[in-house]
């Protein structure tokens, strides 16, 4: 009996501890990226999702990827979005430094999937993926000259597999998915 009495509390502590650390790590990475953008570009994010903006045009991309009628890509309630609107994203030729600071902000559990940079237009897209139990967590960072979006969403493996057919579209599809009304 004694060993069981000892093991059960330890297991509970470990279980609780790990769930807390996973939860906090998730939050930290999303917030860390948002903070990295704010610090580098001297901008401020808005938490109010601008849901009204997207409309039908946005839904089309996601629908095309899913191969039919529009359905949510992200698991219900999993998407977190931070917007930066009507602000100035000028890297002064230091996009590489920003890329490095963002990489430092993220924990090593994230794998970079796609990165596209167009320094002249101050356009950057980053997609990172990591496992989250049976699902995957996808982090999409999109920066343009006057706006930026950070989206973190939990995606079922089947959806990620379909999205991976066109990795360059993942960011667009998930950002639109997270910012449109169902």
């Amino acid at each position: 009996m004694k060993p069981k009495l000892v093991i059960i509390p330890i297991a509970c502590v470990l279980l609780f501890g790990s769930s807390v650390s996973i939860g906090s790590a998730r939050g930290d990475d999303f917030n860390a990226v948002v903070s990295a953008i704010e610090q580098f570009y001297h901008v401020k994010h808005q938490n109010i999702p601008l849901l009204a903006r997207a409309g039908m045009k946005a839904a089309k991309t996601a629908a095309r990827i899913r191969g039919g009628e529009y359905k949510r890509l992200a698991e219900a309630g999993s998407a977190r979005v931070a917007f930066f609107e009507e602000q100035n994203f000028d890297s002064h030729g230091q996009i590489a430094s920003f890329k490095a600071s963002m990489k430092n902000a993220l924990s090593e559990t994230w794998s970079p999937l796609v990165q596209t940079l167009a320094p002249k237009n101050e356009e950057q897209n980053y997609i990172f993926v990591r496992e989250l139990g049976k699902n995957f967590s996808v982090l999409v960072i999109t920066i343009e000259r006057h706006e930026a979006t950070v989206v973190e969403a939990t995606v079922a493996p089947q959806i990620l597999a379909q999205l991976m057919k066109d990795p360059n579209e993942i960011g667009k599809a998930l950002t639109e998915d997270a910012t449109i009304d169902p």
């Binding site: 970079p112 940079l117 167009a118 493996p157 990795p167």
Partner: peptide, 24 residues
């Protein structure tokens, strides 16, 4: 990337490829 006007970098590693294949 510092000199390029456009850069594309795609990394689909073994783990992701295996996972993807499983779901087709």
């Amino acid at each position: 990337a510092n000199k390029a006007s456009e850069t594309v970098d795609v990394k689909l590693d073994e783990h992701l490829m295996q996972m993807t294949a499983k779901f087709f």
